[in-house]
Simulated scan of single mutants.
Amino acid sequence: MSYQISIQKTQNPKNKPDQDNLGFGQIFTDHMFIMDYTEGKGWHDPRIVPYGPLSLEPSTMVFHYGQAVFEGLKAYKTEDGRILLFRPRKNMERINISNERVCIPKIDVDFAVEACKTLVSVDRDWIPEAEGTSLYIRPFIISTDPFLGVRPSWTYKFIIILSPVGAYYKEGINPVKIYVESEYVRAVKGGTGYAKTPGNYAASLIAQVKAKELGYTQVLWLDGVEKKYIEEVGTMNVFFKINGEVITPSLDGSILAGITRESTIELLRASGIKVTERKITIEEIYNAHEAGTLEEAFGTGTAAVISPIGELSWNGKVIKINDGKIGETASFVYNTITGIQSGKIEDKFGWTVEVK
């Protein structure tokens, strides 16, 4: 499929932010990508325009029925000035999985990657170069029919915005404390748990608020039926190292198939470390802790890459992990993936894509 992206440059470029105080998702670049979908016409009119407000009617369907999907990936500036994206095709393949689940027309994967590359190239001066920083890329699709009624929209907008970011967690790569949620659930098999759609995140907020009030950084989600099988940690996939074996919950329809998760599994297996994808209960984690065989726990995701877990709180029981310090496996994964992303380590997996 062939499209021509028109580019309208801003007449009022913004001042670049202080790279030491970027935060996450608070600052946005000069431009954004927009493409429209119309029933009977398909996706059309791809364009890069100055970043700014969208004009939508109050009756726009996305506000009322939540028919939307999104993705997240990053661009990195190497020491020799190259710009690298990390596995962008995987993100665009996954957005189509989400699209199918919520009845949004699929996008052309190759063109979507090209749109990301073109937008990043236009705003290349916004890519921060300080250690641990990157340019966050947020593609998303929203339903845009001005209509009140439950049905798939007939029109959509595919938009990409960019944000220079620092560390996702203020704790950085230091281990975080996690609250095991036993009341609320994130998703169930047959629902939208495997799709990256906003409603999943809205449903998770109440447990996150509760966890933070109790002094914890994030929530460990259990399954929605028996409330004993581990699913995700916050917005990340989760891994445990027990007696030398790395275990992560298997994908069964309620867990998002993370790209950093997939990369972690591939990396560890290529390094000769046993990785098992299976169901695992919170009780098994507690018993491993009691037996002294629980060596590490960490989350994986685009935003933070690796987030080591130093403590779990489950029904009044405290599970301390590796004396609250980052483990060797988490360190290895973090250093290798971020090294590949920044161009400091050779990419033997073919994960990175250069933006010209």
Rank of each mutant, 00 (worst) to 15 (best):
D18W: 10
F28W: 01
G40Y: 01
R47H: 14
L56M: 14
E57K: 12
V62F: 13
Q67Y: 03
E71V: 02
A75D: 02
L85K: 01
K90E: 15
K90W: 06
E93G: 02
A112M: 03
L135K: 05
R138F: 10
F140T: 03
S143I: 06
S153L: 00
Y156K: 04
I159Q: 10
A167K: 15
Y168V: 10
I178A: 03
N200M: 01
A202W: 05
A211I: 05
T217W: 00
Q218W: 03
Q218E: 15
L222T: 05
K228M: 05
Y229Q: 09
T235V: 15
M236W: 05
M236D: 09
N237E: 00
V238N: 03
I242C: 08
G244C: 08
S250N: 11
G253T: 09
L256Q: 05
S271K: 11
S271H: 11
G272E: 05
K279T: 00
Y286D: 11
A288F: 06
E296Y: 10
G299T: 03
V318P: 00
V318W: 00
N322E: 12
T329D: 02
A330Y: 09
N335Q: 13
I340R: 06
S342E: 13
K344G: 07
F349P: 06
T352W: 07
V353W: 04
V355P: 07
